Simulated scan of single mutants.
Amino acid sequence: MVIAVIGAGSIGKRHAGNLEALGEAVEPIGWRGFDQAAFEARKDVEAVVIATSTPIRLELIDICARRDWPFYAEKPLAWRVAQVEAIHDAGAPVAERSMVGFMMRYHPAVRDLAARDLSQVYGFQFEIGHDVRQWRENWSFAGSYAADPEGGGVLMDLSHEVDLALALFPGLELGAVDCVGHRDFAGVDFATRLHLSSAAGVVGSVAMDYVSPVSLRRAGLRGRDEVVDLDFLAPEIRIACEENVKVVPYAFDRNDMFMDMMRDFLALVRGQDTSNNPLIPRFDRMRESSLLVARAWENRVFSGVVDMDMS
Rank of each mutant, 00 (worst) to 15 (best):
I3Y: 14
V5Q: 09
I6G: 09
S10K: 12
G12C: 05
K13R: 15
G17L: 11
N18F: 14
L19R: 07
P28C: 01
G30C: 03
G30R: 04
W31D: 14
G33A: 09
A37M: 09
A41F: 00
R42H: 07
D44I: 02
V45G: 07
A47Y: 00
A47W: 01
V49S: 08
A51T: 12
A51D: 14
T52L: 04
R57D: 02
E59I: 06
R66H: 12
R66K: 15
R67A: 09
W69M: 07
F71Y: 00
E74Y: 06
E74C: 07
R80V: 02
V81H: 10
A82N: 12
I87P: 04
I87G: 06
H88S: 05
H88C: 05
D89A: 15
A90P: 10
A95K: 05
R97K: 13
F102I: 12
M103R: 12
V110T: 05
D112Y: 08
A115I: 08
L118Y: 03
Q120G: 15
V121K: 06
F124W: 04
D131G: 14
W135Y: 13
W135G: 02
E137H: 13
E137M: 11
N138V: 03
W139N: 07
S140R: 14
F141I: 01
F141V: 02
A142K: 13
Y145T: 11
A146E: 13
P149T: 09
P149R: 00
G152D: 03
G153T: 01
L155P: 05
M156S: 13
S159Y: 00
H160Y: 12
L168M: 03
F169N: 03
F169V: 09
G175R: 00
G175N: 06
D178G: 07
C179Y: 13
V180M: 15
R183I: 12
R183C: 12
D184K: 11
G187W: 12
F190E: 05
T192H: 02
L194Y: 00
H195Y: 02
H195N: 12
S198Q: 04
A199R: 11
A200D: 11
V202M: 08
V206R: 00
A207L: 15
S212R: 13
V214I: 14
L216E: 13
R217D: 09
R217Y: 13
L221C: 01
R224Y: 10
L230P: 05
L230D: 00
D231R: 08
D231G: 03
P235M: 04
I237Y: 00
V245C: 10
V247Q: 14
A251H: 14
R254P: 15
D256C: 07
D256T: 09
M257I: 09
F258L: 10
D260M: 14
D260L: 15
F265M: 01
L266D: 05
L266M: 04
V269Q: 08
R270N: 10
S275L: 05
P278E: 03
R282H: 11
M286F: 10
E288C: 07
E288S: 13
S290K: 01
L291T: 10
L291S: 12
A294K: 00
A294N: 01
W297T: 08
R300L: 02
V301F: 11
F302Q: 01
G304V: 06
G304P: 02
D307W: 11
S311D: 10
